[in-house]
Each structure stands twice: as structure tokens, then as C-alpha cells.
């Protein structure tokens, strides 16, 4: 192999400027890069959604208490409902089995809170304030939710310390004491959403793989057509003692250049689309919608992994161009003596 070749940089002995022309290949690669950018964005987005949803909320549930201010039932249902091991700190007044201390004729919400507090495996049980509730409901009821005089249920956010806590038993016990109470585990929903996000992520990954495969095929086809167009020239250069590496290097240099141009163009084209998508996705991903308008703010809205992928696209296209051209040419050259 030639070690240091000082061949002039523009020396195109195989005539590849025409045989691997800049007409078609960069455009095809640009289209691939654009698709790859979308797939990458989908992958990154789905991954961050899944992470966001899973984080912290994995072991929480909400308890809704309709008519929270009404007095709790005097006589609760089954006598054996309250937990025997729970310290009856704030036991209901009607619970004759237990030592009813204060039992100050609690409301339904108070009863619920005290029951929750007395249940092992529960870390915290916190009633959402009216303001928080209004915030939660704003998407459905609009900004005036607070002014509507709706009979809103109280909502208690519960954080479990032991994720294995038997939620069905808890729900049964709560409804026995406070009829109408609704226990909703986030776990199920988080699980479903996470599964959805993971499937989306897998689809995006698959799309990305396909795009890489198609891009490699496009480069291979272009290289093969270049090989047959320059067969005579290759035979001459080969006959003059050029190694396979020399000839493959010429093709690879050209294919790499064209693929890089295509990759960069595709990434540039994808940029505005990704910024728009990031803006749409920000609220779901726990980020914030950029407050001030303007290009900088919009660009800053792109998550770092997306930025990294955009930069990586031309590099990836270059790598695909180089490796594919090298492989294609070297395999083709093996038929020569």
C-alpha cells in the first residue's frame, strides 16, 4: 500500500466527479437524513416521555372523596373493616370496636385521611388545595373553573412507601368507611403510558434502522453504477499497480463527500420541524413552553439529545457513505486478478 501519497487533491483519475455525480446521491441521502432526524426525534421524545412518566409517579395513587365536607357515616359497614394493626390515632367515632378517642364527628375527608394515615405502606397522604385542584381542572373547565360553583370532590394525593401495598384491600376498606370514595392507582396508567411510549420508541428505532439500511443501499447502488461506468478506467489504474485500497479510497472519498452534503442538508431541513415538534411536546415532557418568542428561544427548546443527533446526522451519513463505498468497491475488485 502507498503510505504517503502527495497526489494533487483534485486529481480525479477515475472520473468519479461524473460517474458518482452530485445530481442524485446528495438528494437521496438528504431525504434519508430528514427521515432519520424525525425517527431520532421520535425516539428521543418517546424515551423522555417514558422516563418522565415513570419517575416518581410509579408508586402513587389518588383518592377522590365526593362531598368531602359531609359528616362521615355514623355506623360503618362491616365491623372488621378497620385494620387491626393500625394505630387508631384518629378513629371514627362510630367504630365501637376501637377505642374511639377524639372522634370529633369528622367529615368524610377527615375520615379518609385518618384511614390512609393509619395504613401501613403509605408514605404520605396529602389533600390537594382548591387552587391545585383548579389548576388540574383548568384544561377541562377553563380559567373560570374556580368561579364555578361545582360540587368538586376532594382529591388526596397518596405516595406509597411500599409499592407492593394491596390497593384493592385499601379501596374496599375506604369505601366501607366512606361510601363513594374512588381510589385510582397511577401505576396502571403509568404502566400503560410507559408501554405506549416504549412501543413508540421501538418503532422509531426500527424506522431509524430501516433508514440506515436504505441509505446504505442507495450508496451501494450509486457506487455500483459508478463502478460499471468506470470499468475501463479502473482496469487501467489496476493494471498500473493501484491497490484495491487505492481504488476503493477514491470511491469512498467521493461517496463520503456526497453523503455528508446530503446528511447536512437533511439535518438542516429537519431543524424547523423538530423545533415545532419540541414546542408541542414540551408540556408533556415536563419541560416548559418557551416564554419569550424568537429564534434563540425556539432553538433552545430542542432537547440536548436532539441537538446531538442533528450534529451526528452528517457524520452518520459520512460513515455510511464511506463504509458502504469501501465494501462495495473492494468486493467488486476481487474479480480482478
Amino acid at each position: 500500500m502507498t503510505s504517503v501519497s502527495l497526489r494533487p487533491s483534485g486529481f480525479d483519475e477515475l472520473g468519479l466527479r461524473r460517474a458518482l455525480s452530485d445530481r442524485l446521491l446528495p438528494f437521496l441521502v438528504a431525504a434519508m437524513a430528514f427521515l432519520a432526524a424525525l425517527a431520532l426525534a421520535g425516539w428521543v421524545g418517546a424515551a423522555s416521555l417514558a422516563r418522565e412518566w415513570q419517575a416518581g409517579s410509579g408508586s402513587s395513587l389518588t383518592v377522590q372523596v365526593p362531598r368531602p365536607g359531609d359528616p362521615a357515616q355514623r355506623d360503618s359497614g362491616p365491623k372488621d373493616a378497620p385494620p387491626k394493626d393500625a394505630p387508631p390515632r384518629d378513629a371514627s367515632e362510630g367504630d365501637s370496636d376501637k377505642a374511639s378517642g377524639s372522634a370529633a364527628g369528622g367529615t368524610r375527608i377527615e375520615r379518609t385521611l385518618s384511614l390512609l394515615a393509619g395504613t401501613p405502606g403509605i408514605d404520605t397522604a396529602r389533600r390537594l388545595s382548591d387552587a391545585q385542584l383548579t389548576d388540574l381542572l383548568r384544561p377541562w373547565l377553563g380559567a373560570g373553573a374556580g368561579r364555578l360553583d361545582l360540587p368538586l370532590p376532594a382529591v388526596v394525593a397518596v405516595r406509597l412507601s411500599d409499592p407492593a401495598t394491596d390497593l384493592d384491600a385499601l379501596a374496599r376498606r375506604l369505601s366501607a368507611e366512606v361510601p363513594g370514595v374512588l381510589v385510582e392507582s397511577h401505576g396502571t396508567w403509568v404502566g400503560r403510558l410507559t408501554a405506549l411510549a416504549r412501543s413508540l420508541q421501538a418503532c422509531a428505532g426500527l424506522a431509524l434502522l430501516l433508514v440506515v439500511g436504505v441509505a446504505a443501499a442507495v450508496v451501494a447502488v450509486a457506487t455500483r453504477s459508478g463502478l460499471s461506468a468506470r470499468r475501463a478506467a479502473i482496469e487501467i489504474v489496476h493494471g498500473l499497480g493501484a491497490t484495491d485500497g487505492y481504488i476503493a479510497g477514491r470511491f469512498a472519498a467521493r461517496a463520503t463527500l456526497l453523503a455528508t452534503i446530503g446528511g447536512a442538508a437533511g439535518a438542516l431541513l429537519a431543524l424547523p420541524v423538530l423545533v415545532a415538534l419540541a414546542g408541542l411536546a414540551a408540556p408533556f415532557a415536563g419541560g416548559s413552553v418557551p416564554a419569550e418568542q424568537g429564534v434563540i428561544a425556539f432553538l433552545a427548546a430542542l432537547p440536548t439529545p436532539i441537538w446531538a443527533s442533528l450534529v451526528a446526522l452528517p457524520a452518520g451519513a459520512a460513515a455510511i457513505g464511506f463504509v458502504t463505498a469501501q465494501g462495495t468497491v473492494r468486493r467488486w475488485l476481487r474479480r480482478m486478478p
Binding site: T2, S5, D12, L240, G241
Partner: peptide, 17 residues
Amino acid sequence: HLSAFDNVALPLRISGR
């Protein structure tokens, strides 16, 4: 597609002179 000069130069350039 190469000039007379580049045709004659080809063996030398392939050898990395």
C-alpha cells in the same frame, strides 16, 4: 478524461511519488 500530462503522471502518483 485526463490530459496527456495526467495520463503520464498516473503511474508515479499511484506509486505515491
